[in-house]
Structures are given as structure tokens and as C-alpha cells.
Amino acid sequence: MQTDAQTTASGSTPATYTSFVALGDSFTEGMSDLLPDGTYRGWADLLAARLAARAEPGQDFRYANLAVRGKLIRQISEDQVDVAAAMGADLITLVGGLNDVLRPKCDVDAVCAALESSVERLAPACEQLVLMRSPARRGPVAARFLPRMEQLYAFLDDLAARHGALVVDLHGAEVLGDQRMWGDDRLHLTAEGHRRVAEAVWQTLGLPPESDWTVGLPPAVRPGWAARRTADARFTRQHLLPWIARRLTGRSSGDGRPAKRPDLLPYAPLPSSED
């Protein structure tokens, strides 16, 4: 349940959320925001830590993260949505569909139908549902699939309006398309990218901003030819070829992998994980 706390400068009183459930794929799992122990942090963990810090004294903040890398929207709808709805959290975030539209063959109408089914079950089960226009690394791959993404995001906007959900427009943020915001696999945001996403969601919830998450990076210094070729070869060897192999064999990076944080439990991260 939400309670009132901390009046903002505009005079409005933002909600204090006491529980948060995140649904999705690798983006919500936190790849590639790698911690020293080999686990991933990501924007959802960062957001949970900040929300936990706003909890009233003596009140436990609870957090679950059901995300599993590689999942398509149908799998998210089937495996995560009803579990999340049953938890009765104040805040739920749902991000999915980008894995679908980036595949060579994709029925965008089917993706939208699965998204709609998910929202219809989640919206009544929480105080606030948050959806996102997922970010994309600027380049030829994103450009190729842009019509699909635009169709998906237009549907998402309409869906949110019908169900009282908030939409965080990450795709429209120029800085999140900057190639320097993306990890070596060129599929997942860096730690700085995840930090900005957490701030974007925070502000969309009407909470006091801590930074301008849309501000651009300093001018880029283009690497030399040899450095670019070396990076391309490393990317092909470490990421592209394994991805192709999984596609050819019908496997996913998330096969057999459990949810990141499957239970809605008290969340009090160590200071080192809140930075």
C-alpha cells in the first residue's frame, strides 16, 4: 500500500511504495551491470534500493525481480505475470517485447496481444503499473527493425492510457542510443545506462529528481581502425557466434535459469550495491 510522505517543491506529495515487483528479460535482470562477485545489478535493483531508502522508519520495503534473460513476451506473460499479480505489490514494472521484434520473424500483432493480456492482469493487482519504451543502441540493426518497434510502442502507449499505467520513454532518449552506453555485447546497457534508467523510472513516479538522466555524454573520440576491428572481432567471437548458435538450435540464454529474485522479501541492500 502507498502512504504519503516527503512533499515535493511543487507542493504535491509523492507516494511511498512499500513493495516492488519487476518483470521482464535481461534488461530487467540487469545485464551488463556486472558486480565484482559476478552477479548483475541493473536499474531495477538500483530503483529498489532508492525506494527502500524512502520507507518509513520500522517499515520493511519488499522487492522481487522475476526477470530472466532471453525471455520473449509470451514467456513473460505465461511465467511471470500471474506470479507477480498474486504478490499484491504496490508497484509493478513490466518490460518486454524487444527480444521479439528484433528477431527476423516476428508477428508484432501477437506480441501486442501478449502485452495486452499481461497488462490486463497486472494493472488491477497493483497500485501503479509502469511500462517502458525500451532503449535501443543506435545503428543499422535498430534502424532495420524500427517500424516494428514503433508499432509496438504506439500500442503500448494506448494500452497504458486505457489501464492507468505510466510509460517511461527510454527509446526517445538520445543519450541511451549512444553506443558508449552499451556493453561489449552491444545488447545490454552499461552500469551508467542502468543508473539513468533507474533515474528515469524514479522521476516518472513523480519522485524528486537527483540528476538529469537525459543529458548527453561528452563528444566521442572515434577509435582508430585497428581498435575498431579488434573490438568487432571480439564481439563476433564472444557474443555474436554464441547467439547465432543458440538461434540455430532453438535454445535461449535463459533456459533453465530461475528468476533473479523470485520472492517478495524485505530488501535492504548493502551500501556498496546502492552506488
Score class of each variant (00 low, 15 high):
R138N: 11
Q179T: 14
P266T: 11
A245K: 14
P271Y: 01
S211V: 09
G11E: 06
L102R: 10
E29I: 00
G254Q: 02
L176S: 05
A231Q: 12
F27M: 08
L264K: 12
S19D: 14
I244R: 07
D109Q: 15
G42W: 04
A49P: 00
A44D: 01
Y40V: 06
S118T: 09
S273A: 14
S134A: 12
C126R: 01
A268M: 15
A154L: 12
A55L: 03
R69K: 05
L187A: 03
T7F: 10
R247K: 11
S272H: 12
A231S: 13
S252M: 13
A53S: 13
A89V: 04
E199M: 14
T8I: 13
T39S: 13
S12C: 12
R229P: 10
S10G: 10
A160K: 03
D178Y: 14
V215Q: 12
G216H: 11
G164C: 10
L205H: 02
A161G: 06
A143I: 12
Y63H: 10
D79I: 07
A9N: 10
A9T: 10
Q151P: 03
A200H: 08
V141T: 08
A85V: 11
R222P: 03
L205C: 05
R247E: 08
T39D: 14
Q179R: 12
P36Y: 07
L115S: 10
P135D: 05
G58T: 07
L146K: 13
L270M: 14
A85S: 09
R162N: 04
T28Q: 02
R62K: 15
L166M: 04
